[in-house]
Design a protein around this nucleic acid. Structure first.
Lengths: 189, 189
DNA sequence: CTGACATGTCAACAAGTGTTGGCCTACACT
DNA sequence: AGTGTAGGCCAACACTTGTTGACATGTCAG
């Protein structure tokens, strides 16, 4: 066995993962059946079980995800909001994994936990580096707006939201994120 | 038959609806089974079919909903955002129908359509009355933030978001909604 | 009491689910 | 050549789903 070249099985394993991501993204956890995923990958359902023990673990493998929050060091402090807004759009358009995660998270506890973990370990620290005070709250607020945008634009496809082009979204959402990140803590008024 | 007093069946019909709302809200459309709903209502699954032809129509009946957007006429123009934020929290805490709708909308097309319709017919006109220009876009942005808040606070239960008390949520989210509603259209800058 | 009708229960169906074990095929190595 | 093994397919399992039709019970008018 040549461990140098990837084994042939790696190819179909990858095909299964791709099909799984696609169906989890479009149908959610329960409606994306193993049979449908296998059919979409052009193989037998039993193969899915061979490579990934069960559906739960298949999802876990398919939902592995990195937000790839950009290094914000070089960005002027007052443009970080817009930068994040643009990044969110790019990331969401280029990878269905996030959609699979969001769709599944709403009805499946394990997926919700994974989503929480991603925001806690990836968004949290990034916010902490910029706004050390109230970092958790500020990160939560950002999640609020970012996930709400994703939900209405990519899942529900609310017409006025899908109609906005990239620049408009950044121009509107950017300042909101900027405020959540670096704005004064409200309440004193 | 005395049409004056409600028939006895109306009671169980209402019990079914209540159980349906509860399970649709906590489990989503596919996981909320007719059998589980019937059991929770203390009756036979066949009764559900007798009163509501099928699962689809049961959901439609259970997801009947009114946002009850308050009359904003008496509210100072610059406090409308906070008013809406508070109203959203009240409405969400007091009625599981919204949660059922949101959870189901993510995986079920009919539910998504219903959600779109609710925002189009109830939120849209209210925004139009206040901000006639760009009303659709502004309503969409509001939906973005409101649904994002609901998603992270009530469905995903993101810790920093659930940790905020009512006043804090209103203080943070209110200005965002205010800006989406009455703020200047960005882009000139 | 007798019947009619609303209200409810029971058992079963057909279809679809995740999952399993046995069997086949092709290729690498000696 | 033969043989071991990884990759793949098939048929079946136990179970759950929405849905249906036949049958039982209650309630009230005559």
């Amino acid at each position: 066995m040549s461990t140098i070249k990837g084994r042939r099985s790696d190819a179909t394993k990858e095909a299964i993962l791709a099909a799984a991501r696609e169906l989890f993204a479009s149908d959610g956890y329960e409606r994306a059946t193993i049979r449908a995923i296998a059919a979409s990958a052009g193989i037998d359902p039993a193969m899915v079980m061979r490579y990934f023990e069960n559906k739960e673990k298949l999802f876990a493998a398919a939902a592995e995800f990195d937000l790839r929050i950009p290094d914000l060091a070089g960005t002027p402090l007052d443009q970080i909001g817009a930068r994040i807004a643009g990044h969110v759009l790019d990331r969401w358009d280029g990878d269905e994994t996030l959609m699979a995660l969001l769709r599944a998270a709403v009805t499946h506890q394990a997926a919700a936990d994974r989503m929480l973990e991603i925001f806690a370990t990836q968004l949290g620290p990034a916010v902490l580096a910029i706004a050390p005070d109230d970092a958790a709250t500020r990160a939560g607020l950002i999640a609020t707006q970012v996930l709400g945008l994703a939900l209405t634009r990519y899942v529900l496809r609310l017409p006025p939201v899908t109609a906005m082009d990239r620049d408009a979204v950044v121009a509107w959402i950017g300042p909101t994120l900027q405020n959540y990140l670096t704005g004064p803590r409200p309440g004193v008024d």
